[in-house]
Design a protein around this nucleic acid. Sequence first.
DNA 1: AGATTGACTGCAT
DNA 2: CATGCAGCCAATC
Length: 107
Amino acid sequence: MSPIPSLHERIYELVRQIPAGKVATYGQIARLAGGCSARIVGYAMAGVPDGSNVPWQRVINSKGRVSPRGEGPGSLIQEQILREEGVQFDPTGKIDLAKFCWLGPAG
DNA sequence: AGATTGACTGCAT
DNA sequence: CATGCAGCCAATC
């Protein structure tokens, strides 16, 4: 526990601040995390330990859609969780970022 | 220290 | 709308 959390931990803390029913894009988190690139956020999400309080499911890509993890229902699970949170999906499976995009820790 | 990779992004074809 | 390419930066080998 250092006074200055690593980039990874900082991202986790940031994602933890995302309220239910809202979502944030990788670029958004990256910017709030200190201006790193969206890839770092994606990499951090991939390294999220199972059991942490990080609602990684609320982090999506700039397309307003969940990131296709390739195999497994992972993306589908994420979509279901977001629906449970109150996030609405378009008929195309996209999220209305105009309403559900998290503005940041400031609100 | 160098090369490779990745849950990204934006533009071009 | 599908595919390709380049830029981006940290983690990993």
